[in-house]
Design a protein around this nucleic acid. Structure first.
Lengths: 226, 226
DNA sequence: CCCAGAATGTCCCGAGGGCGACAAGGATCC
DNA sequence: GGATCCTTGTCGCCCTCGGGACATTCTGGG
């Protein structure tokens, strides 16, 4: 996977997917250890597939997992999560089929929590259930906040925000404008237009496969960060 | 337990998710009802306001509530919820200020759950925490689904979908076009345009503060429901 | 050094939709 | 019934953005 692609997934995950959401501490896992066991997954294999009955949730210990949903002629990547993330819990708690598929990207070690064994343990350890609840609601809130932030924003505003997010220590973003456009779900032309505009205002400089942040505060004000 | 009390508990049970999942015992429900009390709100009054400390969550029993956030010069409606909805719980659990304001649209009856009284009850009754968790995760999932569905959809498609969602038993939607527009985050004019279009195609009829669904299947196909 | 392919910078067109304006059709209260 | 307010139905203007087209510039491999 090249760099741009990686950034794309990161952006996707930040924007719409579940960012790594870590409801469980290691002491929790110890208490839960009776409710499941570790499983190893080879790259490319599935932890679970959409529409199959959700009998277990997984806590990722090592490696990355891609979450995607298959739609008529095409899959849609919902997110990519790493160590500590809990996946499959929504479907499992509801006792309904998995909503998305989870595929190991590299070698993955995960702790598999079986529904039938987990529920009694949670009832015995209400603090864990409480923490899970708070983490879940927390996630819900940040998703809603993101939705509000993302809606009704011009390409210019989105570009400004993305530049601030992606800039390295030197204030440089090493991405082609096409990649930027893909990240934002916008056209290359519109992104170029926005960049030209920012350049004219002296907020950024553009180069070959590189954009430099010149005026961070200026960009922040355009991005609508209060 | 008298009849009114029984209905009260049944309603509480309905509010917290699917009733066929982890059924609450009557002692759970009794405990929950001991953590708060009913409040009545007149139209236009607030259940809570953004940025004020979140000391309580509310479970709506009757009436509708509008959730909105105030931004510099202007409010943005985040959503409208009705019977059974739980609001303010995210902020309450996190012990942070409310994220949005909640205003009663009509007369509202709600059950107010106070944080300090609720937490001990949840620890003691993990089943309730579990149900709450499921409801929260469920909402998280549907929010994300909605975001993906809503993006890049025309006002016409959104209107078609909203009509299907809001229609009553007679296929009528009793909302002004301004209200529809607010719900969709669109302008009144665009909504009117979309409705005119649907009317011309014989899919819906419009009246004063009323829209009637004529061809449900036709609307569904426009809304992109597969 | 040269050249093909990639990336950037612009223009233009058209669709979608926000917004102001205004007429016409209910609703409500005196 | 009349005055007033709210709602609906339409126009026209303008902005944003996607997509096609094309010139220009940069990079890397032979």
């Amino acid at each position: 996977m090249d760099n741009a692609e990686h950034q794309h997934f990161a952006w996707l995950a930040r924007s719409f997917g579940r960012t790594d959401y870590l409801p469980l501490t290691s002491s929790d896992l110890e208490a839960l250890s009776g409710a499941g066991e570790y499983v190893e997954k080879y790259p490319g294999t599935h932890l679970f597939r959409e529409n199959s009955p959700a009998t277990a949730a997984f806590v990722l210990q090592k490696g990355q997992v891609e979450l995607y949903r298959t739609r008529r002629e095409g899959r849609r990547v919902v997110g990519r999560v790493g160590e500590g993330a809990v996946i499959g819990d929504i479907a499992m708690f509801q006792n309904q089929p998995y909503i998305s598929s989870a595929k190991a990207i590299g070698p993955v070690t995960a702790f598999r929590l079986e529904r039938t064994r987990l529920l009694p343990v949670l009832i015995e350890h209400p603090m864990i259930a409480m923490r899970w609840l708070v983490a879940g609601l927390n996630q819900l809130e940040s998703t809603q906040r993101r939705v509000i932030r993302l809606m009704h924003r011009t390409v210019r505003e989105q570009v400004a925000e993305l530049l601030l997010d992606e800039a390295d220590a030197y204030g440089e973003v090493h991405l082609s404008q096409s990649s930027l456009a893909t990240l934002l779900g916008a056209s290359r032309q519109s992104v170029n237009e926005a960049l030209s505009d920012l350049r004219r205002q002296g907020l950024a400089e553009t180069g070959y496969r590189m954009i430099r942040v010149v005026d961070e505060a200026g960009l922040a004000s355009i991005a609508g960060r209060e």
